[in-house]
Simulated scan of single mutants.
Amino acid sequence: MKLSNQRLERLAATDPLTGAGNRRHFIEHIGAEIARAKRTGAPLSLLSLDLDHFKDTNDSRGHSVGDEVLRVFVRKCLEAIRPYESVARVGGEEFMVLLPGATLDAAGAVAERLRSAIERTAFDVGAEPSVGVTISVGVSEFRRDGDTLDGFVNVADQRLYRAKFEGRNRVVVA
C-alpha cells in the first residue's frame, strides 16, 4: 500500500512524456524553496527555458520526433544540473530549472553551460538528418526583500522573452 501511494505521488508530480516535474509539482516545490531562502538567507535562482522554433520541428518532422526531442532535452538538462536542483515542464516546450543555493551569476553560468551543451548536441531521434536544437533562457534570482513567487517567475519569463526577441539561442541574465 505504501509503495502504491509513493508511486501515485510520483506519477502525479511528473510530466508523463519527459519525466520532468510537472507544473503543479513545480509550483509547490518553488514555494517551499522560497520559504527556505527567506528563512536561511541562501540564494535561489530560476531558469526559464524554451526550445527555439520547436513548432517547426513538430510540423516538419512529426510529433513523434518532437516528443523524442523533448525527452532527450530533459535528459541533457538533468545531466547539467546537481541532484538537488530540479527541472519542470511548465508548457509544451517550456521548462523551468530551479537552482537552490545559486546566485544570479552562478545561475547565468549554469544557463550558458546548458545552452551551449544543447546547441552542440545532435539530437539523433530516429529522424534523418538529426535534429538541431537551440534554447533561449531567462535567469532570475529571488530577492528576499519583497519578491513574490509570481514576481520571481515573471522576471525569468521576461528575460526569456528578451532572449527570444534578441535572436534566440541566448541567455539573458539582466
Rank of each mutant, 00 (worst) to 15 (best):
G21D: 06
R168C: 05
D56S: 13
R10W: 10
H53G: 06
L47D: 01
L46D: 06
D105E: 15
L11I: 06
E112H: 06
I135H: 01
T40G: 03
T57N: 09
R113G: 12
M1G: 15
V74S: 03
Y84N: 15
E68W: 01
H63D: 02
D15C: 13
D15W: 11
D124G: 04
T14N: 08
L160P: 04
S136A: 09
E141I: 01
N5H: 14
R159T: 10
G167Y: 12
P83F: 11
L78N: 14
E9N: 07
H29C: 12
D105Y: 02
R10Q: 13
K2D: 15
R39D: 11
S60Q: 15
L149P: 04
D52L: 09
D145S: 13
A88K: 07
E93K: 08
N154M: 10
C77H: 10
A35Q: 03
L47K: 05
T40D: 04
D124H: 12
R170H: 05
R89D: 06
R143L: 14
H25M: 04
L11Y: 02
E141G: 02
V69Y: 00
A156L: 02
G92S: 10
K164E: 12
G146N: 08
A127W: 05
L104P: 10
R75N: 11
K55F: 01
G66E: 00
D157T: 04
D50G: 08
R75L: 11
G126S: 14
L51H: 08
R113K: 13
V72N: 01
N5W: 10
A80D: 06
R170D: 04
V74H: 02
E68M: 03
A20R: 11
T103I: 14
G21N: 14
E93Q: 12
D147I: 05
L149D: 11
A32W: 03
L47S: 02
S45Q: 07
S140Y: 00
N58T: 04
R143D: 15
A32F: 01
N5Q: 14
V172Y: 05
L99Y: 08
D124K: 14
A107F: 02
S130V: 10
L98S: 13
A111P: 05
E166M: 08
G132Q: 09
G31C: 00
S60H: 11
V74A: 02
P129C: 12
V72R: 10
L8P: 00
V90A: 09
F73Q: 05
H63A: 02
E128K: 12
R10A: 14
R144Q: 09
V97I: 15
G146M: 06
R75P: 04
T134G: 13
E33G: 00
G132C: 08
S140C: 06
I34A: 04
